[in-house]
Design a protein around this nucleic acid. Structure first.
Lengths: 185, 185
DNA sequence: GTCTATATAGGGATAGAC
DNA sequence: GTCTATCCCTATATAGAC
């Protein structure tokens, strides 16, 4: 199995159980590899697996979500495409966000910097789209932040309520909420 | 030390490390009690400690946050008071929400029902206030859900960005956002 | 590259002294 | 009600065969 496929299997475990709950047994079972084999691929063990998972997710996020914000479409359309991609990225809201899960306990000590960077980049690029839509810079930034807040909050609610409706609703309304009362592009 | 004080110390550990990361060593250190002493107070061990922590938090939440929604003040004022109390409850956004943390991994299997119940109750009572403010029932429910989404999302962002500003901003705008374009009470 | 076997530490839990 | 001591299990990690 390729490294990429292995990492893809690891992701599910970290998402579901968090860093401390992602035991080598669970990681081994999920990948179908023995513990020793995992150490062959990731010599530094669990920490290196989590690092690889975060890098992989970050790369997926860049090439799907963030890329959709940089197309030649008009701002409104770019936001709609981002929401479609987010829906897939989070499996209709059923996937927890690793940025949330990995900011707990030991994982937060290890990975705070990349998590912070990922959130900042997302907000920055969202704000950029809103500025292009004619929204004043300060407002654009707040709305971009609000968008990420709503997505993260909806993911928390989906898990807690065991109902994907809140995530669907937030995504459906996000584009118009972000652009409302502003120049239509 | 009273049971209540003990539980209060346990809360911080579960919040910071999650259920799986909350080891008996950490719980022991935080409370100043040896492991065996913890078993004296909580015979079923860690699971019982987490249960007690959730019950305690739920009770605090009821007597501060939810109670503020049931006063004789007008809806707008009740929402403002709730936000003030939320600010304290979450220590200006620095406290993670146990409902978020405990919906991961093994803890989710153990405590899904009470977590779901707590979220539902909060949303229900918020919606009730909005209905009293003259907002149509369906809209009220959506806005109540939005409020909880924004609070949970802001808490995630605060941790990730290491900046309490998003939480402050969300709380400051929440009352007027919830009541906007509706009958002023 | 994957396995079995094993080392070492830490986690959860209990017995029994005080 | 708290402690020391201890048990068993799991967790991380490594060695070395295939």
């Amino acid at each position: 199995m390729s490294r990429e496929k292995t990492i893809a299997k690891l992701i599910g475990v970290f998402r579901q159980y968090g860093y401390e709950g992602a035991t080598l047994s669970r990681l081994s079972e999920a990948t179908g590899l023995g513990r020793a084999s995992l150490y062959h691929h990731f010599p530094k063990g669990k920490e290196e697996m989590a690092e690889a998972v975060l890098e992989y997710i970050n790369s997926c996020f860049e090439t799907t979500i963030l890329a959709s914000l940089r197309t030649n479409d008009n701002p409104s359309q770019r936001l709609r495409v981002m929401c479609q991609n987010l829906n897939e990225f989070y499996s209709q809201g059923q996937n927890t966000c690793l940025l949330n899960v990995m900011s707990l306990g030991q994982a937060n000590d290890l990975f705070h910097a990349p998590i912070q960077q990922a959130l900042k980049t997302w907000i920055d690029q969202l704000a950029q789209v809103l500025v292009e839509a004619g929204i004043e810079s300060t407002i654009a930034r707040q709305r971009a932040e609000d968008a990420v807040i709503q997505i993260q909050g909806a993911l928390v609610l989906v898990r807690g309520l065991d109902d994907i409706a809140p995530f669907k609703r937030i995504l459906a309304n996000l584009p118009e909420n972000l652009l409302e009362d502003k120049i239509v592009s």
